[in-house]
């Protein structure tokens, strides 16, 4: 996983609550057996006017001018601002893959669905929880004629807009993994002895759990 470094990017405001992972990446694109290439189909049904299918040349498709991702102010945005319960529904990791592939690095919302939230960290994507009132303020700023730029400093857990700083919370373990680009599996495999000891104990207590057929 890539290390998460300090960066400055544009904020794209997606003013909807309960955005589900079916909307983030529709099912027809889940048939891929790869991890990459989902970006052009991020929010496919909202972003384009025609029906998207895998293998289409997305650059030739009619875009929905009313969808915020197609607004010229937000081209190249790396920070997605949205409403509560973002990423609900299906567990598909294709959702963070699509967001990351498109270029998003950070999401700002009042709340997230659990599985999606968890999946983000595995892919170098930082979902930040902010109070509803701050989110409201950011929506006002981000909807201005001039796009809103913001610096995200994970070390200091701060969002910087001009002279203003908004501090945010992040789980220390996840922060550590993001900053160092650590792979969870590698970390867990350092605990082989503990896993084996657990298995041994469990096998004597509940041997029926260790029966393959």
């Amino acid at each position: 996983m890539q290390k998460f470094e300090i960066f400055t990017g544009i904020v794209c405001p997606l003013d909807r609550s309960n955005v589900d992972t079916d909307a983030i990446i529709p099912k027809q694109f889940l048939k891929s057996i790869k991890r990459s290439g989902f970006g052009p189909n991020l929010f496919d049904e909202w972003r384009y006017l025609d029906q998207g299918e895998p293998g289409m040349d997305n650059s030739k498709r009619p875009v929905n001018p009313d969808f915020v991702l197609n607004d010229s102010r937000y081209i190249g945005a790396q920070i997605l601002l949205t409403r509560k319960n973002f990423g609900c529904g299906s567990s598909r990791e294709h959702a963070p893959w699509a967001l990351e592939d498109y270029g998003f690095r950070v999401i700002l919302a009042p709340s997230y669905a659990d599985i999606f939230f968890n999946n983000c960290f595995k892919n170098g994507l930082l979902p930040i929880v902010l109070e509803e009132k701050i989110i409201d303020d950011l929506f006002r700023l981000a909807s201005d004629d001039q796009a809103l730029g913001m610096t995200v400093d994970l070390h200091k857990q701060a969002l910087v807009i001009g002279d203003e700083r908004i501090l945010f919370e992040v789980d220390p373990f996840r922060k550590h993994c993001l900053i160092n680009g650590l792979d969870d599996i590698g970390l867990t495999l350092q605990k082989i002895d503990a896993i084996k000891a657990y298995e041994k104990q469990r096998k004597s207590e509940a041997p029926w759990l260790f029966h393959g057929k």
């Binding site: 990791e93 968890n118 999946n119 595995k122 789980d171 599996i185 867990t188 896993i195 298995e199």
Partner: peptide
């Protein structure tokens, strides 16, 4: 509970998951 693909790989490789 449901998990993402990175966790599918994690379970396959370690029989464990990192959780809170």
């Amino acid at each position: 509970f449901g998990i993402g693909t990175s966790e599918v790989e994690h379970v396959l490789a370690t029989q464990c998951l990192i959780q809170k």
